[in-house]
Structure formats: C-alpha cells, structure tokens
C-alpha cells in the first residue's frame, strides 16, 4: 500500500476523533448549556424568576417527574421504552391513599411493591416472550389505569388526614436555614429525588447491573454473545422503572391529599422527553442519570418561563414538542456522522 493511503488513513482517523469529541461534548453538555442560557435569559426578563420561592417551586413541582424519568433513563439506556409509568403513578397514589390510615410505611411499601411487581411483568413479557417494549408497556399502561379506576370507583380517595407522616412525604421540609433575608428550606420530595439520583448514578456507573444496562442498549446481540444475562437486566430496568413511578405516585398522593385515579396522564411522555432532551440516546447505549436531571429541569424551566410570560400553558406542549424534536434531530445527526 502506498504512502498516500497511509496519510489519508491517519487524517481520516484524526478528523474522526475530533468530530467524535465535538459530538460527544454536545451530546453530554448541550442540554446543560441550553439550561444555563435559558436561566440567564429568564433572570433578566422576569423579576421573580431568581426568587427563592420560584426556584423552590420549579424543584418541588418537578421532583416527582424526576423520579419517573430516572427509571425511564435505565429503560431507555437498554434501548427500551416504558409507557406504563403514568398509570403506575395513579395506581400507586390510589393504593397509598387507601392504606394511609394503616401507617405511612405500609402505604408506601404496598404502593411501591405493587408497581414494582407490574414492572416485573413488563420486563418478563419483554424478555421471555420477546415482544417489543412499546406494545407490552402500552398494554400495561391501559390495564394499570383500569386497575386504578376499579380500585377507587372512579373517584378520588382522600388521605386520612390524621396521618401526619404521610402528608410529610409530599409537603414536609427537612431543614430550614435562614441567612439574612434568604430563607432556604429543603422539601422532602426534592430530597428524595436527590437521593434517588445519587443512588441511580452509583448503580449505573459502579455496578455490573449498570454497565450491563448500557451494554444492552449499545448492541444487544453483542451483549448476548458476551454471555451477559440479557433477560435479568431487562427485568431489572422495568422493575426499577415501576418502583420509581410508584414512589412518585405516593408522593403525589401525599401532596394532593388524595389518590386520584386520573392523575399521571401523559407523565410517561414527559419522562421520555426529559430523558431524551437531557442527552440520552432514544436508541439506548449512551447517556446517564445526570443528563436526565438536566432534561427535567430544562423542561421545568421552559414551563415556568411560559407561565411568567403569561401565555396559555398549552403553549408549553407545543414548545416542548418542538424542542424534543429538535433534540432528536441533532442527536441523530451527531451519531450518524460518527458511523
């Protein structure tokens, strides 16, 4: 082979590496950059954006979606999708509200156990019967919603107001700190989400289950040939997604003071949007839980800005949709160039 080919080869590789670096930077940090830019714009444009109350609001309102999105991150990293989480939120809320009189722990555990079990069913059907996750979780989404409606007879279940502990889950604060005029408090749902993300990050990066989650979405055939237990990973991610959706449902019921069988509609789509906007590939194999936090906050800030702008909140749907599409197009371009 001639020298010319050698040079052409190495140039090609260098350019390839450089492109890959740029692509991976945008992939990893793009959402964060947009989030920071939006916050700067919002801070200048709206007087009350940077107030403690407003920021707390954004965090509190999005903490439950954040939990759902965390589970969704694992599922999407394997190349799957979980449409049933919205219904799980409602079902868990209804169960928890029903059992709140029996004690907070009982209510919490029963609700989370129920949705985890249904998540396991999702995972089992997907891995054993080899049916696409889309179809399996769509069926579960419909069925779980039905269960929630049956359990309540279509009306909301009030939470026993004597159970202070249960109410604390959704509305309590952990500590309050006053520095001069600034009053900082940490709400329980925000703390729960924070802890969940820390654990999620650890699991994803430092355990076999986490690494195999990546492997599955990267190249399932390769994962199989490498002798990974693909079925177990699949079971794990859908169970985890079910559990986190259940937890979010319990917190929501606590915040609302009632279990609403019609709550959580569309949450699965918001969660998917947050995961993808954060920078995790919808096809799996690449991304992370940090990206999802950014994605959740990004969508939260957009909603907040639209409200501050005085626009109808329906606009947020249009904008979120457009934003999601743009992100996927950019991702697609970045990744196709690499191959």
């Amino acid at each position: 082979m001639s020298d010319a080919t050698l040079t052409a080869d190495s140039i090609d590789t260098q350019a390839g590496v450089r492109r890959a670096c740029v692509a991976s930077f945008i992939q990893k940090q793009g959402a964060l950059i947009v989030l920071v830019l939006l916050c700067v714009v919002a801070a200048f444009r709206y007087d009350n954006f940077l107030t403690e109350a407003n920021l707390q609001n954004i965090l509190r309102q999005n903490s439950m979606l954040a939990l759902v999105a965390l589970g969704m991150t694992f599922v999407i990293l394997t190349g799957g999708i979980d449409l049933s989480v919205g219904s799980f939120v409602a079902l868990a809320g209804v169960i928890a509200a029903n059992l709140a009189g029996q004690g907070t722990i009982v209510a919490l555990l029963a609700a989370v156990a129920a949705t985890t079990a249904l998540g396991l069913v999702n995972g089992a059907v997907i891995s054993k019967a080899r049916i696409q996750p889309f179809v399996v979780t769509l069926a579960m989404m419909i069925a779980a919603r039905g269960l929630a409606l049956i359990a309540t007879g279509e009306t909301a279940v009030r939470v026993n107001s004597l159970n202070q502990g249960f109410t604390w889950l959704g509305r309590g604060t952990i500590f309050e700190l006053s520095v001069g005029s600034i009053n900082i408090e940490l709400y329980v749902p925000v703390l729960i989400a924070l802890i969940a993300y820390l654990i999620g990050w650890f699991v994803l990066n430092h355990t076999r289950f986490g690494r195999h989650t990546f492997a599955l979405g990267d190249n399932e055939e390769a994962a199989r040939l490498m002798g990974l237990n693909v079925g177990r990973v699949t079971l794990g991610v859908y169970a985890l997604s079910g559990a986190l959706a259940g937890l979010a449902g319990v917190i929501l019921a606590s915040r609302l003071g009632a279990g609403q069988p019609t709550e959580g509609v569309g949450w699965e789509l918001d969660a998917i949007a947050a995961v993808v906007v954060g920078g995790t590939l919808l096809t799996g194999g690449k991304g992370g839980v940090g990206a999802t936090i950014i994605g959740v906050l990004l969508l939260g800030v957009i909603l907040n800005m639209i409200k501050a702008e005085g626009l109808s909140s329906w606009w947020q749907l249009v904008l979120r949709g457009a934003f999601l599409l743009a992100v996927v197009v950019v991702q697609n371009r970045l990744n196709s160039r690499k191959k």
């Binding site: 990267d218 994962a223 490498m226 690449k286």
Partner: peptide, 25 residues
C-alpha cells in the same frame, strides 16, 4: 465485530466478568 461502540476498550474486554471490589466495579 460484536462489541459495544459507546463503551470503553477495557469494558468491552471485561464485560460480563468485570473485576469487582466490595460489589463495585
């Protein structure tokens, strides 16, 4: 080549039998 494009070289070599300490990779 049946490997994982998004993972590192070391992970590709050891996937499925990663060396572990205290349950962590």
């Amino acid at each position: 080549v049946n490997l994982l494009l998004f993972r590192t070289v070391a992970e590709n070599i050891y996937l499925g039998r990663e060396p572990r300490r205290f349950g962590m990779i």
